[in-house]
Design a protein around this nucleic acid. Structure first.
Length: 599
DNA sequence: TTCAGCAATG
């Protein structure tokens, strides 16, 4: 039945909410109706909002002479459910401040969702205050949305926990909200603690809490608990629930069990696009080329890729440095009009940078309508690895100017860019600004970068002093950076200290012994060199051979030192000979210090 | 109230 027929129907006043397709004529008709049918108009507002026709809904709302709290709430809820949080908030303020309409529990929970969307804790706290004032804070519905708002907007979980502990009655939604909040904040262990508590309290198990608990297992790597939850899922007959199944696939992938993930995937009763995307992303994270095969299977089954699929594909092309495949992925994205998706654009610009095409990487970056911290970091690291240290630093400053707060990863990016470009002073300036300007405590990785920065510039002693003054025990990354610097500058005394510390942390690492023996050899300490070599021989372990690869005409060729098999290998060696000859003619003197002693 | 994607030095 269309709107016209519906409006002509004598039953119209009895069945107002079902309007399949409200038209402008219908709107004009409704506007003629008097204030006596306020409830009808409110229902029509709801119908408009359900169909994302917010302008029509608002026009009708504005035309109502005496609006009650239900009409206000319908409009606020409409805005919130369509993601127009700011408009929902403004309308709520209008309602309470100017029109002095008293909110009910529906209004409060709806506007709390808007506060959550705006990530505005002060607004949420104000609504909390109003809820107390009007005695609505005892409603389970209000309490659950309050908890969700605080958990999303506040820096800590304190407020959400306080609401939760003060509740006289909780339901499965309250518990699930708490588990979700912890898990989404990256504290999966606390999420699982709440889930365990929920089981002890014998709260009814539902698909929501199960899937988020499995997600928490995936995030923490708590594989055994994940398997226990899977058993519970079977016991309660929830196996056919798709989000649960998808979470299980994700958990197997993140717990490094791709074969189990694949097996479970094949056994699933039903799969959706998320299932496929989960498996593709899982294989991609593990660096498996399988991600591309799974994608082709997905397409052959008639499924259409979305932004999530393409993001994983772009990341796969980046880690495998296959530019032509990456370009095909880019083409697919343009054809489907997904270019404006932020995470996808970030993945693409990273792909181009990793595949050596920094110009296209910057093109994507410059054309992005919106950038987040990941966009800036990816571009910065791209510039840094291509030798554009100054440009990388420039991006850092621009990023800060644009109002984005740097995180640890940004500092790793800017420090490594400084390190490669020999910008020691600049790098130290950024390092010092971390605590003073941004309140970020440097972690092991950051210290490793600064040690590398100093070490590459020949300031090996300063690097060691920095390590000695670190506020925590240095880990492998820090000592590894120092050992690298000692190798580059032939400092055998500090090299021994670095190697010893590294070996204390990982005693069976042959590579450390190899580097140390080379440092001794370069420093002419042949006695120490012989001793270290003997140790390596006794360990009987060989260093893993480095492998290079190149993509030529859609084929990837790999090479290992000394390899004599494979297609066109004679041609490769002939070309290499010519190149070496040309390098010598150009005046290149090879650094053969380590050539004799390497394995 | 649940499930899928993007950045890290040595």
């Amino acid at each position: 039945m269309n709107a016209k027929k519906l409006l002509r129907s004598s039953h119209f006043y009895l069945i107002p909410p079902i309007i399949p397709n409200p038209s402008r004529r219908a709107h004009r008709f409704i506007s003629f109706l008097g204030p006596s049918i306020l409830a009808t108009k409110t229902s029509v507002i709801n119908s408009y909002c359900e169909r994302y026709m917010l302008n029509e809904a608002r026009q009708l709302f504005d035309e109502i002479p005496e609006r009650d709290v239900v009409a206000w709430t319908a409009m606020i809820t409409g805005y919130t459910s369509c993601g127009r949080h700011h408009q929902a908030w403004m309308l709520f303020r209008n309602m309470t401040r100017e029109e002095s309409v008293e909110p009910n529990s529906f209004t409060i929970s709806s506007v709390l969702k808007a506060c959550k969307g705006l990530e505005s804790c002060p607004s949420g706290a104000m609504v909390h205050g109003l809820a107390i004032k009007y005695g609505l804070d005892g409603s389970l519905y209000v309490e659950n949305t309050l908890m969700d708002m605080y958990a999303t907007c506040s820096a800590s979980m304190d407020e959400a926990c306080m609401v939760f502990h003060q509740m006289h009655m909780t339901n499965e939604v309250s518990w699930t909200t708490m588990i979700t909040a912890y898990t989404h904040r990256g504290d999966g262990f606390s999420g699982l603690r709440v889930f365990r508590h929920m089981l002890q309290e014998e709260v009814e198990l539902n698909p929501y809490s199960c899937s988020i608990a499995i997600r928490a297992c995936a995030a923490t790597g708590y594989y055994s608990f994940g398997k226990q939850i899977r058993a519970l899922v079977i016991k309660y007959g929830l196996e056919s629930n798709l989000p649960i199944g998808n979470s299980i696939v994700d958990m197997y992938c993140r717990c490094h069990s791709l074969s189990e993930a694949n097996q479970y995937f094949l056994e699933m009763f039903q799969r959706d696009l998320t299932t496929w995307n989960t498996l593709i992303a899982g294989f991609e994270r593990s660096g498996s080329i399988g991600s591309l095969y799974i994608f082709s299977q997905m397409v052959s089954q008639g499924l259409s890729p979305n932004c999530f699929t393409f993001t994983s594909l772009a990341a796969a092309c980046a880690s495998m440095t296959v530019l032509s495949s990456g370009q095909q992925v880019h083409g697919g994205i343009i054809r489907r009009g997904f270019e404006r998706n932020l995470a996808l654009a970030n993945a693409l610009l990273d792909m181009y940078a990793k595949c050596g095409n920094i110009a296209d990487s910057y093109k994507i970056f410059s054309e992005m309508p919106l950038r987040d911290v990941v966009s800036w970091t990816s571009m910065m690291i791209g510039y840094g690895t291509h030798g554009y240290g100054k440009e990388a630093i420039g991006l850092f400053d621009q990023m800060v100017d644009s109002g984005i707060r740097p995180d640890e990863v940004v500092f790793v990016g800017v420090l490594s860019a400084c390190s490669h470009a020999g910008l020691v002073g600049e790098g130290l300036k950024y390092f010092n600004s971390m605590v003073t300007g941004y309140g970020i405590t440097p972690n092991q990785e950051i210290y490793g970068c600064v040690v590398d920065l100093l070490g590459r510039a020949g300031k090996v002693r300063e690097a060691y002093e920095l390590i000695e003054n670190m506020p925590f025990k240095p880990d492998e990354s820090v000592w590894g950076a120092l050992l690298g610097a000692c190798k580059a500058y032939g400092d055998s005394n500090l090299g021994r200290v670095a190697a010893q510390n590294l070996l204390d942390l990982r005693p069976s690492c042959t590579e450390t012994y190899v580097i140390l023996s080379n440092i001794y050899a370069a420093d002419g300490k042949w006695g120490e060199f012989a001793k270290t070599r003997k140790l390596i021989r006794r360990m009987g372990d060989r260093k893993e051979a480095g492998r290079s690869w190149i993509e030529v005409r859609n084929e990837v060729y790999t090479f290992v030192v000394g390899e004599k098999v494979g297609p066109h290998i004679e041609l490769v060696y002939r070309a290499l000979k010519i190149l070496v000859q040309q390098m010598k003619e150009a005046g290149y003197v090879p650094d053969s210090d380590y050539l004799l002693y390497d394995f």
